[in-house]
Nucleic acid binder design. Structure first.
Lengths: 257, 257
DNA sequence: CGTCATGTTGAGCGTCATCAACAGGAGTGG
DNA sequence: CCACTCCTGTTGATGACGCTCAACATGACG
């Protein structure tokens, strides 16, 4: 109950990007974070089939939504980082339809459903904020469907880089210098393959192509998009689908991408 | 204002599957259906970039969410039929990120945002119902991502058939007889190709395979799944991800699929 | 120093795309 | 009634994109 309010900043900050949640509700919400746990990389926070009694909040780190097919193949369906609340649907769904797995070490808070439900009753703007987060997720999923169904491998990978670059920059987690944009990038090539529906071998070759074209540079867990506009053109990336996630305090003043 | 309440049945019925919306709110909501329009097949109800002032409700017919890439390629990201409210996100998103296009002739109702917003303020359960519909959509999108990213062509097509069969049956739009399930199927092979990220030529050959295996039969706009269990096994279909859409009055009593 | 995860390269092959042609049915207009 | 077009489905030939399998390089870590 006395869980530190400080680490919850990212959550609270992000929530307020979606709707004006009154301070006291926000405060109360943070107080509900029943426990905060650290996870190693590559650990399931919640799994397919679970019936969670808490919602989780990513306070720090990256996670991947993913499903595992019979045969063991894994498909990553979404990437999230600090501030996200990736299993809100557990409030309604009888059981979870996918895994939520850490990609890095991660700090995760848990909010009991039992606390969240009455709070939502009292605070429509909280419901709005959550609903809106769901809508953003859905828009991103749609774009991933397009990416998986309709773009060739290299463009597909480039598109993912553009998307993550944009989302990270909006949340203050990327550095822009001239034409370049750089940010922490924890995914291995195999994980990137799982997100794009390719094999690690082929991802490796596509990355060589992107490097060869002078579009990206990767070093030690860090990604640099060398020419954001050229990369976006190559990928066919148009950030409109992310618009609902754009922090309201900077809406419209985007760098072109 | 005096818009016929009768054709709105499908909407109202579906809404109440998601949450108990009080009768008077339900009634009021239906009264807000400002106009009802008929569309021909293959017509955009709303388009990429639109800033709609109304939400639409599919009263009768099928629609496809889709995005068009530069180059003209089209990816269908979702299929919906009677009862769906596919552009709720227009309440929040600055502009629509995809097209909503009829696949059949369709009857569509429109509800002004200006009427919907205050009603939502007053009725939390309405917000819940809408949010929940968004969550179902998101779960389906995730499964489509898996389908597009990780399943070979024939299995991918089979999976789509299983999903639509299940959803249609839950809404009383499919007939089960023994091992078989049959329902109206308006998609052409080319549209099926756009939904599965394949070419029409390859879809044609996969359908021959499915027919050859005795799994499906298609005749004049009608689809028959000849052995639902075998088809599900072939597709790797597990209906759990649809659970939140399952009508509450029949939860649990599913035929195995 | 050995082990393990990750990245890289090569060779060969299969799934699926491309391009082209044609059949059949529905609708249109002469 | 037939000629015409258009849409949908079907088939064949060819080739490319991406997969599989296998080997090896590199760096982190114990």
């Amino acid at each position: 109950m006395a869980a530190a309010h400080q680490p919850i900043n990212t959550f609270s900050k992000r929530l307020n990007m979606f709707a004006d949640v009154p301070d006291e509700i926000d405060h109360e919400l943070c107080g509900f974070v029943a426990k905060v746990r650290e996870f190693n990389a590559n650990h399931d926070i919640v799994s397919q089939g679970d019936k969670p009694s808490h919602c989780c909040v990513i306070l720090e780190g990256w996670i991947a939504r993913n499903k595992i097919l019979e045969g063991g193949r894994r498909q990553i369906t979404a990437l999230h980082f600090s501030g996200a609340t990736p299993d809100l649907q557990s409030l309604f769904m009888p059981s979870l339809d996918h895994n939520i797995t850490t990609l890095t070490t991660a700090r995760v808070g848990f909010i009991p459903h039992a606390s969240l439900r009455p709070l939502m009753e009292r605070c429509p703007s909280l419901v709005r904020a959550f609903w809106r987060e769901t809508l953003v997720d859905a828009a991103i999923s749609r774009e991933w469907e397009v990416n998986l169904g309709a773009r060739p491998a290299s463009n597909r990978i480039a598109h993912l880089f553009c998307e993550m670059g944009t989302r990270l920059e909006w949340f203050g987690r990327a550095n822009r210098r001239g034409k370049t944009l750089s940010f922490a990038w924890p995914l291995t090539q195999s994980q990137l393959a799982e997100a794009t529906g390719l094999t690690n071998v082929h991802v490796n070759r596509c990355l060589q192509e992107l490097r060869g074209r002078g579009l990206v540079e990767m070093a030690r867990e860090r990604m640099t998009l060398l020419d954001v506009q050229k990369l976006a053109a190559f990928a066919g990336f148009n950030p409109d689908y992310l618009a609902a996630e754009e922090p309201r305090d900077r809406a419209g003043q985007n760098q072109p991408m």
